Simulated scan of single mutants.
Amino acid sequence: MGESSHERFEMDPRLGLYRRFKDISISERILNTAFLLTIGIGYLVALVNLYYTYQGKDGKSGLSIDDVMVAYHGSHDQTRLGSAINGIMEPNLKYKSDKDVILKWIQQGAEEPEYNDHIAPILNRDCIGCHTPSVNPSLPDLTNYAGVAEVAHAGGATLPFLIRVSHIHLFGIAFILFFIGKIFLLCDLNVIIKRITVAIPFVAMLLDVSSWFITKVFPEFAYVVVTCGALMGVSMGIQILMSIYQMWFYSSNQETR
């Protein structure tokens, strides 16, 4: 069976016809909406995860720019392991007294003999359920002294850690932004606005990841990390909300590119 003239025009943008939400079926609207809502909820959960991951790294409750600086650049007063033990990881310790044992070991130089005698049994019991490369490669490896030493000394995130997390981040988020953008392009909006809106989250993501490495050297770049992360989230939110609104509540007879 041959294609209708409308289908042929729709497949050739040079003829001036572009698909809009009014052109798609109810089933496709339901599919798009379910995807966008799931991604939106997932992003909100990711924000909560970010809070619990970074809060308390400066030794104070709550999330601040100093927490981001410590996470990437490090601190002479705080190590990643010490900050985690004082913050997010403290509830995971079976015995509260183990916190003082670990902090004392860090303050005394985090040497391997003491690690084998006193620290490894604690971490093996309470921490390696999550901090194992085969279980969660994005978290520090606490299954051996070499991995623990990386986070027990001041210096922030290591270069191998940043490379591992950034490659996961770029691949995963890029796919999400692509599919959100493909749906958003069906909106009935000015072409310039749409082009800028779909490009912003990609640019923000690239600047965000690049700033991780720069912040390791220059801690002030933590402000760029936070700003770019927020910009990416806001631009994603705008695309999701605008797409859902136009799919179900908006109608227009104008055909714009």
Score class of each variant (00 low, 15 high):
3 E>R: 10
5 S>M: 15
10 E>L: 15
10 E>N: 10
13 P>F: 03
13 P>T: 08
19 R>G: 10
20 R>Q: 13
24 I>C: 03
25 S>G: 06
25 S>M: 08
25 S>D: 10
29 R>A: 01
34 A>F: 15
40 G>R: 03
43 Y>C: 02
43 Y>H: 09
43 Y>Q: 10
45 V>D: 03
50 L>W: 13
51 Y>D: 04
56 G>Q: 04
57 K>S: 07
60 K>D: 03
62 G>C: 04
62 G>M: 05
64 S>G: 09
66 D>N: 13
68 V>A: 05
69 M>P: 00
70 V>R: 05
71 A>T: 07
74 G>R: 06
76 H>M: 11
77 D>K: 15
77 D>T: 07
87 G>Y: 05
88 I>T: 10
95 Y>Q: 01
99 K>R: 13
100 D>C: 00
102 I>L: 00
103 L>K: 00
104 K>A: 02
104 K>I: 00
106 I>C: 02
110 A>Q: 02
111 E>R: 09
111 E>P: 01
122 I>M: 04
122 I>D: 00
123 L>P: 00
125 R>W: 04
125 R>T: 05
127 C>V: 02
127 C>H: 04
128 I>H: 01
131 H>M: 07
135 V>W: 09
139 L>S: 12
142 L>T: 04
145 Y>S: 03
147 G>P: 10
148 V>L: 07
149 A>M: 13
150 E>W: 01
150 E>Y: 01
150 E>S: 12
151 V>M: 06
151 V>S: 05
153 H>M: 12
156 G>L: 07
159 L>P: 08
160 P>L: 06
164 R>M: 15
166 S>L: 08
167 H>K: 14
168 I>E: 15
175 F>N: 06
177 L>K: 04
178 F>N: 08
179 F>H: 08
181 G>D: 02
181 G>P: 04
183 I>V: 11
183 I>E: 09
184 F>D: 06
189 L>F: 15
196 I>N: 05
196 I>S: 08
197 T>Q: 14
199 A>V: 12
199 A>Y: 02
200 I>P: 03
201 P>I: 03
206 L>W: 12
210 S>W: 07
212 W>R: 00
214 I>G: 01
214 I>T: 03
219 P>M: 05
221 F>C: 05
222 A>N: 06
223 Y>D: 09
226 V>W: 13
228 C>L: 12
231 L>S: 12
233 G>W: 11
236 M>F: 08
236 M>R: 05
239 Q>G: 05
239 Q>M: 15
240 I>K: 08
242 M>A: 15
248 W>R: 12
250 Y>R: 09
251 S>F: 15
254 Q>V: 13
257 R>W: 14
